[in-house]
Each structure stands twice: as C-alpha cells, then as structure tokens.
Amino acid sequence: MTQAPAIAVENLVKVYKSVTAVAGVSFSLPPGSMTALLGGNGAGKSTTIAMLMGLVEPSAGTVHVLGARMPGERYRVLHRMNFESPYVDMPMRLTVRQNLGVFARLYGVADVAARIAALADDLDLVELLDRPTGNLSAGQNTRVALAKALLNTPAVLLLDEPTASLDPDTADWVRARLDKFRKENGATVLLASHNMGEVERLCERVIIMKQGRIVDDDTPAALLARYGRATLEDVFLDVARGRGEAARAQLRQDAGDAGEKPAPAREAAQ
C-alpha cells in the first residue's frame, strides 16, 4: 500500500501585490524522507516553507501537511510539526531552560523536565540550560533553536539554514544529530540550505527553485550526473546563472524519447 505523503503541495502560488514569490509549485514528500529546498535569494524557498507552516496563505493551489490542509486545518497538525529558522529568535532574557519549558508546554510535551534533560544531553546544552538565551553565542543559539524544534519529536520538521553560524565541527555534529533524529523517529524533514555539502550528506532528494518555480528535482547523484558536475555547488551555480538550461533541455529530450516526463513534471503529476 502506498503511504500518504507527509507533505503534498499542488500548483502553489503566492503573489504579494504585483510580485509573484511562488509561481505554481508542486511536490510531495513521503513520510521519513529528508529533502533539500535549494535556490538563490528570492527564489521562493522561504515563502514556500512559510506556507507549509500555515504562516502565509497561498494565493492559489493547496498545501497538505500530515493530511491537514494549511492554513485552514493547521491546528489538527501543528503539535506534530516544528521548525527552526535563523530569522526567528527566542526571548533573550529567559534562560534556555525557561524558554524550552514554555515551548514544551505549548506543544503538550508530557514530561517537560525529562524531555529538556534528554535534549540537553543529546545536543550538549547541559551547561547552557540556566544561562539567559541572549548571552549565548550564535552557534549555541542555533543548538538551542534546534532543541526547541525537536521538543515535541515532530513528525514534520522544517529547517531554514539549520547550521548557519556554526563552525564546521559543530555543524557536522548537528547534521549527525538531525540524521539520527530522522532515522530514529521516521520524521519527514524539509530543509532550506545554502550549504551544498550539508545537502549532499543529509538529503536523498533536492528540489531547486528559481524565480518562484521548481527548475529541477532529483537525487543529488542524478543532479550531479545530469549537469556533469562534481559538486552540488557547481550545479547550484549552473542553475543560478542560467547555464543549466541545456542540461534540462537534454533531460526533457531524453525523457521525451523514452516516453517519460522530466523529474519536476513527474512529481507534479503524482
């Protein structure tokens, strides 16, 4: 039996006054998958994620998360979702323990103290728990934000630049924790990132956006092969600078010869 997708997006459009931020995006993510959303500034990644969270209402199209249509039915599923973004902070005067305690209660975590202790242990926050959140370094703040995002053991986790501001060692360590969390809990993870190494290591699928549209969607290995590049960073640059069109045209031709649709269209048709 085919599992219902954890996230299903169909013909999603968002127009702000005269600016089209998202222009007809479709994709679906199966439960337990980890997918990267790539794209330059203004590609529409943040707006897409905001619509997945129910913070922004689509102009057209639909978003379903765990079977609930967003934003109308968001309260059915918000307790099973969470997110982390560098553009959102936690109250700085509160200690880490107080902040995590407040959010644990908002998410209905059963044993708040035990959950905070477990996360602090796992994310190396024990020494930070009783320090004001505003006194932490950027890297420590990122780890606290990650702890907040994992408080309710979410079934859907949305991450915006999860390792921003972290040194390479800590970033690598955080990636390992995310991977472990996903595998242990079967969570569906969608992450927006500019760190291509991170994407290659963590994600089995990459969706590339440009000017509000999906321009490519495949596994990292398939993208590397299609663009004839050694790294996803080069693929990203090809797409950003318009050099990827030839590769995609070739893909469309190959797919046409074989009677198939190219990856993004295939996804949209699902």
Binding site: Y87, V88, M90, P91, L106
Partner: peptide
C-alpha cells in the same frame, strides 16, 4: 514583547 524578541513566528507556529 513577542515582536521585540522576534519570537512571534515561534508562537504563531505553535499549537497555541
């Protein structure tokens, strides 16, 4: 206070 601390999105994204 939620806006000054840039915490509003955390609140609006929670089940509150």
């Amino acid at each position: 206070e939620e806006m000054w601390s840039r915490n509003l999105a955390n609140i609006m994204m929670s089940p509150l």
